[in-house]
């Protein structure tokens, strides 16, 4: 039984000029309770779009196909009303804009307590009590409840945001680049915090980041996305040490690693345009191993550690 089940998800962003960008092009992803999953991929490959779709939060000009099941509710089809009941109570999110993700005019405490009362999980009194509790959980003093967001540092704000996200005891926490815009020390602290919360609360964590170190440390499973599809999915240790897909290999080689003396490579070419139809493997034009079969889109194959590559299945990769 998964806490999040995504099947055949497609997302198109409809531009006013009639063209549409196919940002997510058929994604299947199931997340088990308590699982920690990292999503890797270069800018624009659809990571944020995937998460927003999973919460049913895409803007109205986006068209969505497929299925996203959270707590038995299909957030795309069962209507906005029932989707709202699972937001924050079943799946919560912490995202990129840590600085501005809190409402500047309400006190931090109110912002943590309000959703509990809104979702009728408890009375306002109990919500206040629980607010202190979760603030403690993320390592903030209870007095932060009375502060306004602008009175907190970036790291404290992100902690407050995390406290907010776990207050309603969700089963899944999406963290979309939760540490960008924070300094390195704080980044590490936030990473550790997310990890320990996920362990203590049995929370499934979906962690999107460009920081491969963070994925290596904090997630047991890794998913690599390219141009709106998943190209590799497996245990983090295997994906990072024995990547199967040519894209993953290049992506890892293109990532700087301290203390390791090897030349940095960059992947030649650029990701495909999403507003034009993509046939076959999207990575083929940039792939050193591309051959005729790549004109057909490769399925994810493998057992436990899957990758979508014809060259791989035909044993052409050394």
């Amino acid at each position: 039984m998964s806490v999040l089940d995504i099947r055949g998800l497609h997302v198109w962003f409809d531009a006013p000029d009639g063209r549409s960008a196919h940002a997510v092009r058929g994604v299947d992803l199931a997340v088990r309770p308590g699982e920690r999953l990292g999503i890797l991929g270069e800018s624009g490959c659809g990571k944020t779009t995937l998460i927003l779709a999973a919460m049913g939060l895409l803007p109205s000009f986006a068209s969505v196909g497929g299925q996203v099941v959270l707590d038995g509710i299909d957030v795309l089809c069962d209507g906005e009303k029932s989707a709202r009941t699972v937001r924050w109570t079943h799946a919560a999110m912490v995202f990129q804009g840590a600085m501005n993700a809190l409402n500047p005019v309400h006190r931090v405490g109110e912002q943590i307590a309000d959703p509990m009362v809104f979702h009728k999980q408890c009375s306002r009194r109990e919500a206040k009590e629980r607010t202190r509790e979760v603030l403690g959980l993320v390592g903030l003093p209870a007095s932060v409840a009375r502060r306004y967001p602008h009175e907190l540092s970036g790291g404290m704000r992100q902690r407050a945001m995390i406290a907010m996200a776990v207050a309603c005891e969700p089963k899944v926490l999406f963290a979309d680049e939760p540490t960008t815009a924070l300094d390195v020390i704080v980044q590490a602290q936030i990473g550790d915090l997310l990890y320990s919360l996920s362990e203590r609360l049995g929370l499934a964590l979906v962690l999107v980041t460009h920081d491969i170190g963070m994925i290596a440390e904090h997630s047991e499973r890794s998913v690599v996305m390219y141009a709106g599809v998943i190209v590799e999915d497996g245990p983090t240790y295997e994906v990072l040490t024995a990547p199967r897909h040519p894209y993953t290999r290049l992506l890892l080689e293109a990532t700087p690693v301290v203390n390791r003396d090897r030349p940095l490579v960059s992947i030649p070419g650029s990701p495909p345009r999403l507003d034009q139809p993509i046939t076959g493997c999207a990575f083929a034009p940039r792939c050193p191993h591309a051959f005729e079969a790549c004109a057909v889109r490769p399925p994810l194959t493998g057992d436990g550690h899957v990758a979508a590559c014809h060259a791989l299945t035909q044993g052409r990769l050394s």
Partner: peptide, 14 residues
């Protein structure tokens, strides 16, 4: 268009 409005929607508010 502010980020905190996205947070509010993620909280399930109407």
């Amino acid at each position: 268009a502010d980020d905190h409005v996205l947070t509010a929607r993620a909280k399930g508010y109407g």
